[in-house]
Design a protein around this nucleic acid. Structure first.
Lengths: 371, 371
DNA sequence: GTGAAAGCGCTAACAC
DNA sequence: GTGTTAGCGCTTTCAC
């Protein structure tokens, strides 16, 4: 048995040793800073500014700025530069981002705003989107600001919270009929929409046509003739487009399509299932995996065997942990990539490039055990 | 069958109708803004400032500031106030956050930084932490900045990126032996650590003592005599503390404990399982659910039946979707609450209150089907 | 090569 | 009640 308890008992000691040994603490916790700790934030000067560095180095603050800015256009001799850098070190000077940003009109922060009422990060679909945003921001070296929803729903207030200089660009996730869209579209703030494409805002979304088509083809191939489509609780452009594509393809393939709405419970579906066998649907296409999972529960409750009696097809395919994932037949949507691509486009847009109004990412049919 | 296709075909039309009908577009997309769109950001003045509002209202910018600031200390007559508000409306003025923040020394943004190399949002554990941060920030009306990791690992650089005025407070998630800790502890930036407690930084974490104890008690109750503890890949204070608590309690209860490390594969465990029955362990306690899930896979591969031959206990209990979650016996950790509590404390700290150096949240034993 | 000065947009103390 | 002014910390143009 190994001595893990020993490791624990000295754990606090380790901190001091490693920290003091490894780095110049003066650089991290400088004189000015220590004073600041004592006084608290409100009583007087807390941070050391460029002017104090200048004084200590015997130059003016303009010169300090030139050295620190690193613009090769100004040639500052090594001696002065060295004096300034020493002063920076000794005083523990750190440039104030706010002042810098105000002057430069740039914050190096991208924002994300979701108007969705159903926004919950542990929802794997959302988590993947956030991960994509994070990855994208890391790539282009920006921090990511999650703009809070506490401001309510008044578009003017929300817009003001978004377009006030705090961020250099914005990724949004909202319905195209949100009043905010018009404002953002006309704003000078670079914006990219994800998931639900928004007209007049560059958007990154799934190839919903492909999604709808793949599902219809699969069902037809499997010999289904009558199927049910379970629609979204809200008229989201992306879901509608997939729905329409599905219907088009279903018609072409001779599939009869019944419908019921996700939010309305299973009464309608139950009614369909009570039809005589000749008229009874043999598959349900759900607008997303969660609806499909809930339906599977319902089938299990009613003793409907899946997929023999009823096939169930989802849409999303966001991997939970591989082991725990249900073997749902679904269409895998690259949410992570959607978000990351959005940030990449945003970055190009911010840099002044033109970007495509609409970017579609392919989806992939994934045959599971439910249909 | 319902006509969803109709809804789709007019979808784009809806935008205009709803947006124009519902709100004052001038407020959202004002004159100055429209011009800005044309010119782009770099060519000249983009935003309308308080001075332009002042000019239009026939007052000075100081007066405008007073009206907009809403400080009751200054009493501005209705007539002037009205003129100013109209000008604000007509010009589509929005206060510049950067300027405001620079002046006030406050950004209304809380930051989150994770030094962990394993930071991936789709990991349910992380997702729940982020959700807690989001909820907490929403409660105290702050935006949440995810500080990127692209700056590398040099503590000076990272520290500069954190303590530069960009945020009012910080929640961190890192090992206590990270060099950054010392810097943050001495910084004037209010900081709260989560998950792994950091000495000298107020921390919110789980009651690991309780976690370790609950597991040992459960195993003893179930009649186990020889168990294996699967340890973390890194010496995290929280995991070490739980481990130690488990060992203590196990000893008290007369449980023999073998060990193996998560990262080292299953060779050690296999060796234990090859022992004669009298010496063979009957349960494995994993330092977190992921390790447990992976172990379950291993057992399944080797034909070891769980929990008959070997009980498997996890730690985390973050719910994936309820339907898809494995029925793992585990200890449920309230990650969401840990993060939310951290933000609440941070908010109090920023307001000037004293906050406890250490906050522990209770965990809950959850009996599943694996032990 | 370095200094002086203007100004980013805002708030707040002080004067009238 | 309103105007004036200083200044938050920084960058950058223009003199010297």
């Amino acid at each position: 048995m190994r001595g893990a308890t020993t490791g624990l008992s000295v754990a606090h000691g380790i901190v001091g040793i490693i920290c003091n040994g490894g780095y110049n603490i003066n650089k991290l916790c400088a004189v000015g800073e220590a004073i600041a700790c004592d006084r608290g934030r409100r009583s007087g000067k807390v941070t050391v500014s460029i002017r104090e560095v200048a004084k200590r180095a015997g130059v003016t603050h303009g010169t300090v700025s030139k050295v620190l800015g690193g613009n090769p256009k100004y040639s500052i001799p090594q001696s002065t530069r060295q004096r300034i850098l020493s002063a920076v070190d000794e005083l523990g000077y750190r440039p104030n981002y706010l002042a810098q940003s105000l002057k430069l009109g740039r914050t190096d922060i991208y924002g994300f705003y979701s108007g969705s009422r159903h926004f919950e990060i542990p929802n794997a679909y959302i988590a993947n989107i956030l991960e994509g945003l994070r990855a994208g921001c890391n790539e282009c070296e920006k921090d990511l600001l999650l703009v809070g929803t506490f401001r309510g729903t008044d578009p003017v207030t929300v817009y003001n919270a978004l377009a006030n200089g705090k961020i250099d660009g914005l990724v949004v996730f909202m319905y195209e009929y949100d009043a905010l869209c018009a404002a953002l579209a006309n704003s000078s703030l670079p914006v990219v929409a994800i998931v639900d494409p928004v007209p007049s805002i560059p958007s990154v979304s799934l190839d919903e046509q492909m999604g709808g088509r793949l599902i219809a083809e699969h069902l037809a191939e499997r010999g289904h003739r009558r199927v049910v489509y379970c629609t979204a609780y809200a008229p989201m452009a992306s879901a509608l487009e997939r729905h329409a594509a599905f219907l088009r393809e279903a018609e072409r393939l001779g599939l009869a399509v019944l419908e019921f709405a996700d939010h309305a419970g299973f009464e309608e579906l139950d009614a369909y299932m009570a039809l005589p066998v000749s008229e009874r649907p043999t598959a349900v296409v759900c607008w997303h995996d969660r609806a499909a999972e809930s339906l599977l529960g319902h089938c299990s409750d009613l003793g409907i065997s899946v997929p023999t009696e009823l096939a169930v097809i989802g849409f999303d395919g966001v991997p939970f942990s591989p082991e725990s994932q249900m073997r749902l037949t679904t269409v895998v949507a690259p949410w992570r990539d959607v978000a990351r691509e959005a940030v990449r486009l945003l970055d190009r847009r911010v840099a002044g490039d033109a970007i495509p109004p609409l970017t579609h990412l392919s989806v992939e049919f994934k045959e599971g055990a439910t249909g």
